[in-house]
Structures are given as structure tokens and as C-alpha cells.
């Protein structure tokens, strides 16, 4: 079950010459047990381990289902940059717990690597309506009840794509070798990402994921151009313009939020409390560990992991409160960096 050196094909248990139909079929088959609504793996592993595996499969599928991205990936494989290293943070062999973003991945095997926070959206097509039968109610709360899409044979890839296919296909993908060391590259993509406008997608293609997605559009972002950052008052986008459906709270700020508003941990906590949400609620919505949420609210930077993760957490936090994620992240990360700068 080693992840290191595992190719995207390995993750989907496919050979490198797999057809589009095989990719689709394998992915559907895996979703049947890895999907957020599936009971099949209940108690077999920790929920976060399952989520981590789900991410890996989703990542593989997202790349391989797209002919252009697949071709680019194949070229990088041929060049010998095996695996899919750019998003992976190798775990130290002695670690049994590797904290990666909001995924607390217990390595299954000592060579396992983990991923930064990314969450797989659920496919939307062919999803049966949530049944009115009492069956979902019998599912423990730990298991979300999104019905798993049935295994569909080789349908055209575009029609079942769970991720917004309206995103312009840009050839630059995370696995394309870059001059920088991979983790740095990821960090830079990520920092662009959270400030990047999210392209609107047709409502019909929205994944009905209950899970927040931090950097699902990584692959669609060019390396070079940082989108211009013009501070402007944040208006939450209409739901259909978002590529994800996240449960949002309705905070009641005591003063209107302006581009100048500073998002300290304490202020975030006040906003959360004004929305009548407990830390546990926040934890459930954002999937960020309570420990980290508390550290964010306490401004306890010491207790927080590397910037790249903290940014991910804060983005999720902001989303949950229907705030402008980029403004919140920028503001909070400014404080974080100032602290780290002082600390050494």
C-alpha cells in the first residue's frame, strides 16, 4: 500500500494504456467504497485515512480523464519523474501520524506519503435523488449520506466529470517538472489559488460535495501570472457560481466588513459565535481539526503548522462564514508571517 512511486495509474489500479472507459469504470468502482456516502469501509480505517485515499483517487481521476492532462502526465512519467510527487509530502518513516492540512493521515505503511488538504467533490451525474426511504437515517452521523453514484459504463467523460469542466484547460499541471523544488511550487500555486477568481460553472455541473475544497483548481492555474489583487468589498458569490456547495454560517458582524477589516483570530471567533456556531460545528463544516481551529482563534501561531496549511485552514474557515477567503487569508497570514518573522 505504498504511495511513494505510485503512479496515477496505480492509484486507479490501471495499466498505463488504460482506455477512457476503463478509467471511468475503475474510478466509479472505487467511489463505490471510497465515496463520502459509502458505508463499505466504515470502521475499516479512520475517517481521515479514507478521506486521504479518496483524495488520491480523485486526483488521479481528474488528471487521467482529461486527455490533455493525461498526455502531459504521461510525458512526465516517460521522463522518469515517476509518481505524482508535487503534491506529496513524504512522511518520515518513523511517523505514524503525519499532519497534512486538515487530513490527519495515519500512514498505513511506513512509506506512505500524504497530501495537503484537498477534497474530492462527489460526482453529480447519475446520482440518485436522496431517497425518502428511512435508510440514510440508519447511517451513523460519522458517515455522510450522499448516495454514491451507480457504476455507469463508459459514458462520455465530459458528461460525468465531477469537477467543473468549464475551467479552461491549461496545460500546466502540478506534475510538470518545474525549476523549483516541488513543495515550493505547490505552495506558490496554492497561494495563487486562494486569491484567484473561481470561474463560474453551469449549475448542472456542480458537485454536491459536502466537503470544502481548498485547492481543487490547482491544476488549472498557470504558474506564472498571479492574479491581480484589487481589494474590493466582498460579496458572496451566488451559489451556482461556486464549484462547490459548502454549508455556510451567517455571522452578524457588529461593524460592516470592509477591505480594511483585520481578521485576527479573536475577530474570527467573534464572527463564529455571532453565527451561533460552536467550535465543533466549525470543525464539522471545515473538516479542519479542532486543535487548529482553536489555535487560529487564539492566535496561537506556535501551535500551527506550516504556512501553506494554515492558509488552507483559514480559507476553509472563511468559506464557512461566507467571508471572502482571500481577504481573510491575506489578513490572517500577514499576522502569522509577522509572528514567524519575529520568531526567527
Amino acid at each position: 500500500m505504498s504511495d511513494r512511486g505510485q503512479t496515477l495509474y496505480d492509484r486507479l489500479e490501471l495499466r498505463a494504456d488504460a482506455s477512457a472507459a476503463e478509467i471511468e469504470q475503475s474510478y466509479r468502482g472505487m467511489l463505490a467504497y471510497l465515496g463520502a456516502g459509502s458505508m463499505a469501509m466504515y470502521s475499516m480505517m479512520e475517517e481521515d485515512e479514507i478521506a486521504n485515499l479518496r483524495l488520491q483517487v480523485q486526483e488521479a481521476y481528474d488528471t487521467l480523464k482529461d486527455p490533455e492532462r493525461r498526455a502531459a502526465y504521461d510525458r512526465s512519467l516517460a521522463r522518469g519523474s515517476e509518481g505524482y510527487p508535487s503534491l506529496m509530502i513524504p512522511a518520515s518513516p518513523t511517523d505514524t501520524h503525519v499532519t497534512v492540512g486538515h487530513v490527519m493521515a495515519r500512514t498505513i505503511d511506513t512509506t506512505a506519503a500524504a497530501l495537503p488538504p484537498r477534497v474530492m467533490p462527489e460526482p453529480t451525474v447519475a446520482r440518485p435523488p436522496v431517497e425518502s426511504t428511512p435508510s440514510p437515517a440508519r447511517v451513523a452521523s460519522a458517515v455522510s449520506v450522499v448516495p454514491v453514484a451507480p457504476v455507469v459504463p463508459a459514458t462520455p467523460v465530459t458528461s460525468v466529470a465531477p469537477v467543473a469542466s468549464a475551467v479552461p484547460a491549461i496545460q500546466v499541471t502540478p506534475f510538470v517538472p518545474v525549476a523549483e523544488p516541488a513543495p515550493v511550487a505547490v505552495a506558490s500555486i496554492r497561494s495563487q489559488l486562494v486569491t484567484a477568481p473561481v470561474p463560474a460553472v453551469p449549475a448542472s455541473e456542480e458537485p454536491a460535495s459536502e466537503l470544502p475544497v481548498a485547492i481543487e483548481k490547482v491544476a488549472a492555474l498557470p504558474f506564472g501570472g498571479t492574479p491581480a489583487l484589487t481589494p474590493r468589498p466582498w460579496t458572496p458569490p451566488p451559489v451556482h457560481a461556486s464549484p462547490r456547495v459548502v454549508r455556510r454560517l451567517a455571522p452578524k458582524p457588529d461593524a460592516p466588513i470592509t477591505p480594511e477589516t483585520e481578521f485576527t483570530g479573536a475577530y474570527l471567533r467573534r464572527l463564529r459565535e455571532s453565527a451561533n456556531a460552536s467550535l465543533d460545528d466549525m470543525c464539522e463544516i471545515t473538516k479542519v481539526g479542532k486543535r487548529y481551529l482553536r489555535a487560529i482563534e487564539d492566535g496561537d501561531f506556535e501551535a500551527l503548522p506550516a504556512a501553506v496549511y494554515v492558509r488552507g485552514f483559514v480559507v476553509e474557515y472563511a468559506r464557512a462564514l461566507a467571508l471572502d477567503p482571500s481577504q481573510v487569508a491575506k489578513s490572517f497570514m500577514g499576522l502569522y508571517k509577522r509572528f514567524k518573522g519575529e520568531g526567527g
Binding site: A32, Y33, L34, G37, M44, M45, E131, T133, S135
Partner: peptide
Amino acid sequence: VRTPEEERLGVAISEACRKYF
């Protein structure tokens, strides 16, 4: 078994067992 989703559970469990056990 009551729902179509539950009908697929057996295959899903068996696949998960193969893969992870």
C-alpha cells in the same frame, strides 16, 4: 437490502476488503 445503494454495498465491501485487507 432496501435501496439500490444498499444493493451495491456487497460489491463495495468486497472490493474494499480486497484492496485494503
